[in-house]
Design a protein around this nucleic acid. Structure first.
Lengths: 201, 201
DNA sequence: ACTATACGGAACTCGCCAGTTCTGGAACTC
DNA sequence: GAGTTCCAGAACTGGCGAGTTCCGTATAGT
C-alpha cells in the first residue's frame, strides 16, 4: 500500500476506504479469479472511484498482494487450540475454531495460475496462506509427540501437509464443499491413524 | 474438433497439423496458463497460421478442451500395474510406470481458475484428468483388499484421493518438483501405513 | 477566504488479444 | 487446366480492461 506523505493542508484520506476496497477486492477475487477481476468492479463494489483505488495501490498486482497480506493470514495459532489431551481431541477442537477459513482458500483459486509468473505473490501466498496452515497442523503433531502419542518414524513433514493439500484440492480442483463430514474424516481417518497408529477408538 | 465434410475436390487437410497444434497448445498452456495463452503463440509454435487453427477449432475454449480430452488422459489403468503381491510393491511398480505424467498436471495449473466458469471444461478435467488418477489408486487399494492386506474400516474413498491431492498441491500451489523421494514417501509413509497399518518393514 | 488534497464518477488513451480476412502459392478432383 | 480447398503468414477489426485525467464537490489546515 502506498504511504504518501501529506505535504501541507488539504482533505485527509478517508481511512475507511482502504478497508472497503480491500474487502471488495477479496470478494471479487474469490468469485472471479485474478484475470477476470477488474479494477472497475472492485471500485464499484467498494462504492469508490477508480482514482481512489489507484491513489492507494499502484497496480492491480499490488492490490491483490495486499489482499492476501492483510486479510489472508490465518488468525489461529497452535496456542489458540486447547490442549485436550489427545491428538484426536485437539483436531476436533481445531475444526470447531476455523469456521470461516474457506474464503481465503477460494481467493487462492484464481491466484494459482498467477503464482508461476509473480515471485512476490508466490512469496506472500507461501508466507501468509500456506505456511501458517501447515505450521498449525505441525504444531499439533509436535504436541502429540511430547505426549508420547506419536508412532516412531512418522514423517511429520509430509503428514503436516496432508490436510492443506486435501482441502486445497477439494476447493480448487473438484469444487466440492468443505462439509463437516469431510473435515472429520480427514482428521480421524487420515491424520490420527497415521500419526498414532490408532485406526478406531 | 470440427469435422467438416469435404464437399468436392480441393486440397485435403494435412492431418499432421492437428497433432502439432494440440501439442503446441498443451505446451503453451502448461507454461503460460489459460488466460495468458494466445492463439497467436500456439499457431507460431506449431508452425501454423492462425487460420489453420480456426479451421479446426471454433474458439480458444474448444481447443483447450480438446487438449485435455485428447492428450490429458492417463494411459495407465490398474491392469497395467503388475501384481507384485503387496500394496507396497504395486505402488513402487506404478511409480516406475508413470514417469511423464507431470505435464498434464502442469497444464491443469492455468486451467484451475477457469473451472468455475466453464462447466464443460470442469467435466472434461474430472473425466480425463482427475477421475482416472483417483480410480487407479482405488484399483490398487481394492487389489490389496482382495489379498486381505487392508485393515478393516479403512476409508478407501478418501484415501484414494490423497496421492492426487498431494501431487496437485505440490505442482499447483508450492511449485516443488515431483522428485522420486517425494513420491516414495507419499506411498510408503502415507498410503501403505494407512491402508495396511504396517508403518515399517 | 484561500489552498491543497480528498472524494465519486465519467471520459479518455493505449495495448493486447480473439477472431476474420487477404495474399501468394500448393495440392487434390474432375 | 479449371475449380476448390488447403497452407503459412500478415494485415485487419472490435472489444475489453489497466491505468490516467478531468469534473464538480467535500473537507481539512492556515
Amino acid at each position: 500500500m502506498l504511504e504518501e506523505r501529506q505535504r501541507k493542508g488539504g482533505r485527509p484520506r478517508d481511512a475507511t476506504r482502504d478497508a472497503d476496497i480491500l474487502e471488495a477486492a477479496r470478494a471479487v477475487l474469490a468469485e472471479r479469479g485474478y484475470e477476470r477481476t477488474t479494477m472497475a468492479e472492485i471500485a464499484a463494489r467498494a462504492g469508490a472511484g477508480k482514482a481512489t483505488v489507484y491513489r492507494r495501490w499502484a497496480s492491480k498486482a499490488e492490490l491483490v498482494i495486499d489482499v492476501l497480506a492483510c486479510s489472508g493470514s490465518l488468525a489461529i495459532t497452535v496456542d489458540d487450540v486447547p490442549d485436550t489431551g489427545s491428538l484426536r481431541g485437539d483436531l476436533a477442537a481445531l475444526r470447531a475454531l476455523k469456521s470461516r477459513d474457506e474464503s481465503t482458500w477460494r481467493a487462492l483459486v484464481g491466484l494459482v495460475s498467477e503464482l508461476p509468473h509473480s515471485p512476490e505473490l508466490a512469496r506472500v501466498v507461501d508466507q501468509r496462506v500456506v505456511g501458517p496452515r501447515v505450521a498449525l497442523i505441525r504444531g499439533l503433531l509436535e504436541r502429540a509427540r511430547d505426549r508420547g502419542e506419536l508412532l516412531p518414524g512418522v514423517n511429520v513433514d509430509l503428514l503436516s501437509r496432508v490436510p492443506s493439500s486435501m482441502i486445497a484440492y477439494r476447493l480448487l480442483v473438484t469444487h466440492e464443499p468443505l462439509d463437516p463430514e469431510f473435515l472429520r474424516s480427514l482428521s480421524e481417518d487420515i491424520v490420527v491413524p497415521l500419526a498414532t497408529g490408532r485406526p478406531r477408538d
